[in-house]
Design a protein around this nucleic acid. Structure first.
Ligand SMILES: [Mn+2]
Ligand SMILES: [Mn+2]
Ligand SMILES: [Zn+2]
Ligand SMILES: [Zn+2]
Lengths: 146, 146
DNA sequence: TCTCATATTTAGAATTATTCTAAGGTGTTG
DNA sequence: CAACACCTTAGAATAATTCTAAATATGAGA
């Protein structure tokens, strides 16, 4: 009888990789589980790399970058541009927007269905709207009022 | 009788610098004129540096960066984050949003007064909204329909 | 199961935007 | 004009990301 390993197939990483035509390598499976198990996440390459190390998964930073980009091409992730210094990858690929806490560098989702934008001028001749991003930039309040 | 030089005081760069407490150096005056003469502009440090060279103004790239940041602190400029590879500086400091043509890397203003965003959830406890950015990402259409 | 072509990983070098350092030049004020 | 703080700048340093090219793993077929 097989022992119940700590395999957590919640994320169905394996089938996701298959559908995307990506070989289920040890690295991609491990990163996929870190990314897709549990809820929605916003990660940088560096942060995911450290998380992998901490989880005992040996993956190079180059592979983390490769994998994040491949997952993005496969629409398993999307990029969020909020900071010109680092790139965030988002496991939530549905239509949504973001709170960005500039101090902490952390992102929170805003459901796309809850927001409406009116009065947008039409896109210039010869262009198509690829996406509309709303970023609500937040600053921590120094002291909670007493 | 003084010749009519190509000084174009349209931008009132000198008085702007004075108000900001910045010494009107040759470099800051030249960059200020490039930025503020004529209409609203969206520039990268590199692009402004090249423009200065082309205009025969000798300024180092480090000074272009310093100046852009000082102008931003003085609210003569603002930063626009649309691309995680480069920082854009915007001479339009009024409330507005952007079209971003991803192919060309160019920005176009959308008047802030024309847009309304409804349904935004309130900012999390302990945070203040510093700004709301709307970015409409555009892709060029391959062929104009005939 | 073995083989082999192909996909993948990776260390380390390279690239690129931006920032830093520290030394010399400039604007302002008395 | 002197004095000093402010500025500019060349070049080095940083940091995120990409590239290179060599080693390794995967999977289809024998
Ligand atoms: Mn401010
Ligand atoms: Mn960078
Ligand atoms: Zn998100
Ligand atoms: Zn603008």
């Amino acid at each position: 009888m097989k022992p119940v390993t700590q395999d957590r197939p919640y994320s169905q990483t394996l089938s996701r990789l298959r559908e995307a035509g990506l070989r289920p390598t040890r690295q991609r499976l491990a990163l996929g589980r870190l990314l897709f198990d549990g809820g929605d996440r916003h990660v940088t390459a560096e942060a995911l790399h450290e998380e992998a190390q901490a989880a005992g998964v040996s993956v190079s930073l180059a592979t983390v970058y490769n994998t994040l980009h491949q997952f993005t091409e496969a629409h398993l992730l999307r990029e969020v541009v909020v900071d010109s210094a680092r790139t965030y990858f988002d496991t939530n690929v549905s239509d949504h927007h973001h709170f960005f806490l500039e101090n902490a560098g952390s992102l929170m989702d805003i459901d796309g269905g809850k927001i409406a934008i009116t009065g947008l001028p039409q896109a210039p001749e010869g262009t198509d709207v690829a996406r509309v991003d709303v970023i609500v930039r937040l600053h921590g309040t120094p002291r909670p009022a007493e």
